[in-house]
Write a protein that binds this DNA or RNA. Structure first.
Lengths: 255, 255
DNA sequence: AAGAAGTATTCCCTCATTCCGAAAAACCCA
DNA sequence: TGGGTTTTTCGGAATGAGGGAATACTTCTT
């Protein structure tokens, strides 16, 4: 976003900029896009027509929008993850057992990305849509993933993204984070105490891939009142850990 | 696929071709892509580098793949549909009540596209991933959608896509399809009797949008042995119809 | 340890193409 | 029907996309 891209193929970058603008505006006409983009109307028109022919954009009269083709391709990208198939049933089971919202999170392009979310009985409406991006330093699955990564990779992620403060509980110093990661590493489980959003706590455990880099993390999350005391310290962590163990086993047997 | 596109912006079309090749190959190196595409290695290299910088492609050493960014964008595209949020809870409920696989399907770019799928107790492993494309003329949700569309739109869809024969039960004549659509229209429910896949039956009902064009369809699907007799004729259709009714009501109240 | 084989990346040159501005066409509202 | 708004088309000029060959890099082999 901040970086001025220097891509070899400029026209593709322009098309991408158009798509990005469509995402921000949800739905837009050419003139609206003209205000948000450093290009002439005729240029925008060309790119929109191209993207429409290619199936990435749909138009309803004069309202252009991104198409569900992204969902289709995204689905393929998701199915590539060996963790996905076994992870889904595990997450579902975890959601049922805990009654909370359970998610499967992986790391890609230095970001935590939610692959799947299941909701238990008492979970409120959804957060954590597939594809949603989670910060790594202040969420349970994010920290769980960082804890099993090679230190130099953690370094470059923190260097690139910093430690943005979302709430007063967010760990914003590298030292504090490192200490916490140590703790997570030795205990095999990560906690989030309203470090990202007020009144949301989370618990997560990472599952290692074969390469040494993490394959993903399994997590639950809920408002603070349902996540405190023994439940937060022992019961739910127990469920998460055994889920992660089953997932590890499933991954091993599969390959 | 069949039509040779003549897009105003050629470079974007080239990038799209690269992405499509990556989808087919799951994961590919530049040389592999070179075999599948009518471009030089240096061109492919440029496009991959561009797409990587833009976040649409990730590379692991020399293996390039499409990224989860598509999932992220697809999620936005999906949330745009007013049907989606209320549809999800309805589909879930339907899956639980019927014990079968239930889906929410919309029409976009003349295609049926699955927005969401929930599985009941006795449903086998998944089909109907979000983003998956369904043929319109030989699936329950597809026919339900066609039945509530303006006839001229049905015409152009059939003209463009034909009536491909998937099984011996597929309706391949326009007359037979029209008759069936009439029936669906009057009964408010659509059936699929192994017209797409062997041993898969489906039942669906469409939900109208405000514009006269359909908003989407809600459907269940299962192997033939669990979908026959009174269950297929009455019980399940009843569940589907009342689900659709609740969904209509939810849509109206929302807007 | 060094060469061989395969791969990615860079370089340069040329022609096609992107992009803009302006003009034309389509559309919407009275 | 006509003015204001928006989209679409058009032509020309600068640029950048694309191919081919040379180079750098990895990995495998011997």
């Amino acid at each position: 976003m901040a970086d001025r891209e220097d891509t070899p193929v400029k026209a593709t970058a322009t098309s991408a900029r158009v798509i990005e603008a469509l995402l921000e505006l949800e739905s837009a006409t050419i003139t609206e896009l003209d205000d948000h983009l450093p290009h002439s109307k005729s240029t925008i028109h060309s790119h929109l027509e191209t993207l429409e022919q290619l199936g990435f954009v749909v138009r309803d009269n004069w309202a252009y929008q991104v198409s569900l083709r992204f969902l289709e391709i995204g689905s393929v990208a998701r199915n590539r993850y060996p963790l996905y198939q076994p992870g889904v049933s595990e997450v579902r089971q975890l959601a049922t057992a805990s009654g909370l919202v359970a998610s499967l999170v992986v790391i890609e392009r230095q970001r935590g990305i939610c692959l799947y979310t299941a909701m238990g009985k008492k979970s409120d409406r959804s957060f954590g849509d597939p594809g949603e991006i989670l910060p790594l330093h202040c969420t349970a699955p994010g920290k769980a993933l960082l804890a099993v990564m090679a230190p130099e990779n953690v370094d470059s992620i923190i260097d690139d993204h910093g430690l943005r403060e979302y709430t007063e509980n967010t760990l914003t110093s590298r030292a504090a984070l490192d200490e916490e990661l140590q703790d997570i590493q030795s205990r095999g489980i990560a906690f989030n105490r309203e470090e990202w959003r007020e009144d949301v706590r989370g618990i997560a455990a990472a599952v290692e891939g074969k390469t040494g880099s993490p394959a993903g993390a399994i997590s639950v999350r809920s408002p603070t009142d349902t996540m405190s005391g023994k439940r937060f310290q022992q019961d739910i962590p127990g469920l998460v850990i055994s889920s992660a163990n089953r997932l590890r086993k499933a991954l091993r047997s599969e390959r």
